[in-house]
């Protein structure tokens, strides 16, 4: 059981950041496609910081109560809560595409905004690999190419 929090600066060395996230998430118990999904989503959040969030920030990862949380904070604070699009944005060159993708890949995504800092929070349940009997927690996937 991993519950200590780890934190790294976001730089253009995304490969090292992905390895750190993957190593932590594996120790926390994530495997298979859900492990891949979290790494992809966290990478997208880091790209947004580099591209739109002032070019610097921090990524913190923790595990509490069977949920892995990845906090990706910039030093600008321009990204407001509720910025995660429910549908795939038409333009693929903007920040919205990455945010939409995070919402598709993770169990939930929230955004906290305080002056000078926006934090994207990604959540992934460790035991979420098997769909529950009721199917209520299964997220809608499979966007279609227009």
């Amino acid at each position: 059981m991993v519950d200590h929090r780890r934190q790294w600066p976001i730089t253009d060395d995304l490969a090292a950041l992905r390895e750190n996230i993957q190593r932590y998430a594996v120790q926390a118990g994530l495997t298979g496609p859900r492990l891949d999904d979290l790494v992809i989503a966290a990478n997208e959040a880091a790209i947004n910081v580099l591209e739109h969030g002032g070019g610097a920030g921090t990524l913190a990862i923790s595990c509490d109560g069977g949920v892995v949380a990845v906090d990706v904070a910039d030093h600008v604070g321009a990204l407001p809560p509720g910025a995660v699009p429910g549908e795939r944005p038409g333009g693929r060159a903007d920040r919205g595409f990455g945010l939409w993708l995070m919402g598709e890949l993770c169990d939930s995504v929230t955004i906290d905004q305080i002056p000078g800092q926006s934090t994207v929070r990604l959540f992934m349940r460790v035991d979420g690999g098997d769909p529950p009997a009721g199917g209520g927690a299964a997220s809608l996937r499979g966007a279609h190419w227009a």
Partner: peptide, 13 residues
């Protein structure tokens, strides 16, 4: 599988 995942999720496959 990871590449397939991102291509499938985005619908871009």
């Amino acid at each position: 599988p990871r590449l397939t995942r991102i291509f499938t999720t985005t619908g871009l496959i």
